[in-house]
């Protein structure tokens, strides 16, 4: 009898604290850590894609850029190592006319028509390569119900842009390299 009376309730606070602590960690800190690292991974992937599209824009011909994109895998591997999975990508050429409001978007194989080429009626134009990459960024801790970014990979689109460099003509075909 006397033992039960003497038994303090100091442990009760620990039990309450423990529960609250678990709730705090699971529902607040883990999602916070996950979201923070998703942002960091995003910025790393963004930097890498920007660097890569710059390399694509430095190729001799536009077809070479598409070939390089389909055969080069180092950037995907690098993304993988940074915890970012590349699930798809699309490379487009965006041509903006002198007025700024004129704009066309061309995908692989579509030639730039004469009015948009240097010296054409829409000139001077700005030629930009746009690389849109679909990525999946998984959180550090996953599991439980699938909440993108918290417990399951977050699907995102990352874009990189770089001005097309080679605006000269091919001496063999006389055509612009941007159309080859």
């Amino acid at each position: 009898m006397s033992t039960s009376k003497k038994r303090g309730q100091r442990g009760g606070a620990i039990a309450e604290f423990g529960t609250a602590f678990v709730v705090l960690v699971i529902f607040f800190f883990v999602p916070l850590v996950n979201l923070s690292f998703i942002a960091v991974k995003y910025f790393i992937a963004q930097g890498l894609i920007q660097e890569y599209v710059h390399r694509l824009a430095e190729t001799e011909k536009r077809s070479e850029a598409y070939t390089m994109l389909s055969t080069d895998d180092w950037w995907k591997d690098f993304c993988d190592r940074c915890g970012v999975t590349v699930s798809g990508h699309e490379l487009k050429l965006v041509v903006c006319g002198a007025t700024g409001s004129d704009k066309i978007t061309l995908s692989s194989g579509a030639p730039v028509t004469s009015q948009w080429l240097p010296g054409g009626s829409k000139a001077p134009c700005i030629y930009t390569l746009d690389l849109v990459v679909d990525v999946l960024i998984p959180p550090i801790y996953s599991g439980g119900p699938a909440v993108p970014g918290i417990t399951s990979p977050l699907p995102l689109k990352i874009e990189g842009h770089s001005n097309w460099e080679n605006l000269s003509r091919n001496p063999v075909t006389s055509g612009y390299f941007i159309n080859e």
Binding site: L32, S36, F37, F43, I44, G47, L48, Q50, E51
Partner: peptide
């Protein structure tokens, strides 16, 4: 602790920005 972790990660993420 979280802030330190994020800053460490940011410092490595920032390397790409600096490289560009």
């Amino acid at each position: 602790l979280l802030a330190v972790l994020v800053l460490v990660a940011c410092s490595f993420g920032g390397l790409f920005f600096v490289f560009n």
